[in-house]
Amino acid sequence: MQTPKTNQQKKIQVDSSSMDRIHPMENVLRMDRIPHIWCPGCGIGLAVTAFAAALEKAEIDLSKIVIVSGIGCTGRVAGYVKLDSFHTTHGRAIAFATGIKVANPDMKVVVFSGDGDLIAIGGNHFIHAARRNIDMLVVCVNNFIYAMTGGQVAPTTPLTAYATTCPFGCVEPPFNIPYLADSSGAVYVARWTTLHVRRLTNAFVEALNKKGFSVVEAISPCAQYYSRINRLGDGLDMMRYYHDNAEIRNGEDTKNLDIDFQGKIIVGKFIDRERPSYTDRYNEWLSKVKGGENEPG
């Protein structure tokens, strides 16, 4: 299947002047699966690029990192990165990753999925993993819609925006993902758009080095469905919207981060704190259990 070239792909293309040089991302991406399935103008590729750059910057042992995705457009990310990678069921990426982290605390666990997957059907696992403070990085690519199934309303769709299952406009207020993550107990919360590639990369680096449940929301254009249904132009127009309306406010109180339809998007790093992780608590509990006391006779 041929996919028209996207920004993302152009970047991957090898510099023709030095054909034998290996592309810097080749050790992170599965080149045998390129071209990818994402549409022209989609922002997921940018988020992946930022993530790949962050892996390098954070100097992480690539064999000690595992990436888990759910279902949806962003759910396909796991298939394109050359790491131990799992493409699981809809909404359950965090639960699956919890099993991995708890069973093998040596692994760095990254969940890379979309808003519908993580926040709609996976909302329960999201809040519980945050509460338990499972040590993982959750990358939530938020494109305001279900794109893989063709443009249904998501719990992140701004009020009054159109989608195929709300043909008369969205009537449910969207989640403020940083606020939700914050109030459930996440230790690191940031939001950037895919226009802010460099800052997004830095956020990934910080979060990868953070111990505990970290959430990075990457606001990303969906040119095929969200923009088309709402007549917002193509991917580039969405980038322009981010450019004009994104406002950096590091440390902003998470409750002020709602996003209105084509309104202001406040981006930045909002939360960075310490809490004992699940494994810490479990080990602490085990250490308190005295030798014979807990043993059945």
């Binding site: 299947m1 028209p4 549409c39 457009c73 396909r76 095929q224």
Partner: peptide
Amino acid sequence: GPEARGGA
């Protein structure tokens, strides 16, 4: 499906 988008 995803294969039907953009491409053939």
